[in-house]
Simulated assay, not measured.
Amino acid sequence: MKRTWMAGLGVVAGVLAAGTASAQTEFNASIWFPDTHPLTGAGYVQWVEQLEEASDGDLVANLFTGSALLPPSAHLSGLQDGIAQVTYHAGTYTPSDLPEDNTLSILGLGLRDIMTAGFAVTDFYMNDPEMQARFQELGIIFAGGYATPQYHLICSTEVANLEDLEGLKIRMPGPIHADWARSVGATPVNVPSSEMFTGLERGQLDCAANAANDLKSRSLWDVAEYVNLVPLGSYFAGWEWAFNADFWQGLNDNQRRIMLDTISSSLVDALIAYESASMEALEEAPDHGVTIHEPNEEMLASVNDFANNVAPETAIEQGTEQFGLEDPEGLIKRFEETLAKWDELLKGVDRTDGEKLKEILHDNLYAEVDESSYGMQ
């Protein structure tokens, strides 16, 4: 692995290597989270090290973190253009390019288990014909998903009940969260997670809905003294790993197999690290002057009612009217069936048992992916 923090360094070498499978295949990987974020640390830093080792030095990544190579919203276009050969991308940043993904992401408000969500999203996006047709149209190869721990309210003002939300400006990750905020009298603000600290510091935001790990990884506890643990679901839009199609198709079968197997393992590592980082940050938060509130029954009922009754209807409505999908109801039904499949496969499994989780994911998904045909259309 070659670590690169300044845009431009290593870009030419990586692009020249794209689409070839020479003695050493060098490529650019980009994720816009900081190094302290678990999707970066476990999902990319450790993955590219494992990739180089598993390939005996054949597959070598120039890894760009933060916005060194691409700004957050450009991680799809930069992938398509070959500036990077593999990226992370938050799908809600480019809704018109990813209509199915954005339709399904609305259901995240009701998801409570990071493993079921992350495994099911990956399975569905790799195997559903409608999803695969979209990725083929975009010229990218989906290789692995992700999901976040529960989003909570991280605030600069105390929020103990629904009435406290009245009039607050809250950074929300997606449209369904924004709709819920409006339903309780708050004002949703659409800014990327990279701007949460500044927004809270300057008073442009009163709260940010996000996973609790960012209290520590982005030092939000320096500008937010209160957390309400109301469960606002799991965010999963986009992908953790997707490849430029020309690059992927230029690899040989063995290289693609190594990519798939290392991603299968790293996906589990990233989810465990993400959940662990969130729990650790909450445990440490009181030492940084943060007051943590458990949500009261009224607040829980408000979110759960929205997730169970409003979110599915909103997904169908937006899928039809905003995104022009032919059958959003069928899309949602198939996705829910995949969620049920993984809920059953993971029943009773310790969510901290990395080896068991890796075995289940590999045997029930990645081992079934044919490296000689997947993404080769």
Rank of each mutant, 00 (worst) to 15 (best):
D327H: 14
W47C: 00
E49F: 06
A270C: 09
A186L: 01
V11S: 15
G348V: 07
E336A: 05
D179E: 15
Y366G: 06
G139C: 02
A224G: 07
L220A: 08
L345V: 02
A13R: 09
N102K: 00
L331Q: 04
E344G: 11
Q46C: 01
M131P: 00
L345S: 10
E225Q: 12
T4W: 03
L79R: 03
L331H: 03
G14C: 09
G145T: 04
N190H: 11
L357W: 04
T352C: 00
P188C: 04
L76V: 11
L104M: 08
L325W: 08
Q85K: 09
F247W: 01
V268D: 07
T25Q: 11
P149K: 05
S276N: 12
Q318G: 03
A143F: 06
A13E: 11
P312K: 15
M279H: 13
G238L: 08
A277K: 12
N190E: 15
A209E: 12
S266I: 03
I106A: 06
E284F: 04
A311T: 02
R112G: 10
L282R: 13
Y151G: 15
P286Y: 07
A143H: 13
L357I: 04
L98K: 03
S193Y: 14
Y235D: 14
M6D: 08
A90T: 15
H152A: 12
S276E: 03
E275I: 10
E275C: 08
L76T: 04
G238H: 14
D214I: 13
L260N: 00
A209T: 05
G324N: 06
E275M: 15
Q80E: 07
A367T: 08
W180R: 02
L162N: 10
S183N: 02
D58N: 01
N62T: 05
M376P: 07
T338P: 12
P71E: 14
Q322T: 09
L16H: 05
S217A: 10
E49D: 07
L162M: 13
K356R: 08
F306D: 11
F197Q: 03
L331N: 07
T352L: 08
S217H: 08
R3T: 10
N210M: 15
L109S: 13
W239H: 14
I360Q: 00
C207M: 06
A245N: 01
R134H: 00
E337G: 08
M1F: 05
M376W: 02
S278P: 00
S264L: 02
R334I: 09
D35V: 10
E317M: 14
A54K: 02
F243S: 05
L76E: 10
L109I: 15
G203E: 07
L63T: 08
A301M: 05
E368A: 13
Q24K: 04
L232E: 09
L220R: 11
F64H: 01
D327A: 13
E137R: 07
F247C: 01
R182K: 12
C155Q: 12
L365S: 07
L260R: 02
F124S: 03
D97R: 01
D343E: 05
Y226V: 05
E52K: 15
F247D: 01
A17S: 10
G330K: 02
G82L: 10
F119T: 03
E344W: 04
H89F: 04
A340H: 09
